[in-house]
């Protein structure tokens, strides 16, 4: 049985290898051609970082603070909360006391986040 399996898939495997070679060979040829024939003329300006013609200043790898966590919190409050609130409201009459308390704690945590972001001035537009 094993030999039949190999016999069936051998042509496919060969075709796949051929296809990959067919795709890669022009790239390899172009690479070899560029290594061999391209007129390399490196220079300090040519090798400099491309900054739309301006001289680059300082290091590119610096830390900066995007403060993206604020967007994440606001997204959590206004989008995820709404998604959870709808099933909560639909199933409200059939819920046990424990489930209601758990949901209210969840809401309380999000409200706390809302108050915190509000105090930070995130909700102020410009």
């Amino acid at each position: 049985m094993n030999t039949i399996f190999i016999d069936i898939y051998r042509p496919i495997a060969i075709l796949m290898i051929a296809a990959v070679c067919f795709a890669i060979s022009p790239l390899v040829m172009a690479w070899v051609w560029s290594k061999k024939f391209s007129p390399r003329k490196p220079g300090p300006v040519k090798n400099a970082t491309y900054e739309c013609g301006l001289e680059s200043k300082g290091a590119a790898l610096i830390h900066f603070k995007p403060e993206y966590y604020l967007y994440a919190i606001v997204f959590l409050i206004f989008d995820v909360e709404a998604i959870f609130l709808l099933p909560f409201a639909v199933a409200f009459s059939g819920l046990s006391v424990g489930a209601s308390i758990a949901m209210l704690i969840f809401l309380l945590l999000l409200v706390e986040g809302l108050i915190w972001t509000w105090q930070k001035g995130v909700l102020t537009w410009v």
Binding site: G43, Y50, G53, L54
Partner: peptide, 8 residues
């Protein structure tokens, strides 16, 4: 500078 950064 842009011209210099173009390859030959």
């Amino acid at each position: 500078r842009l011209y210099n950064q173009m390859p030959e």
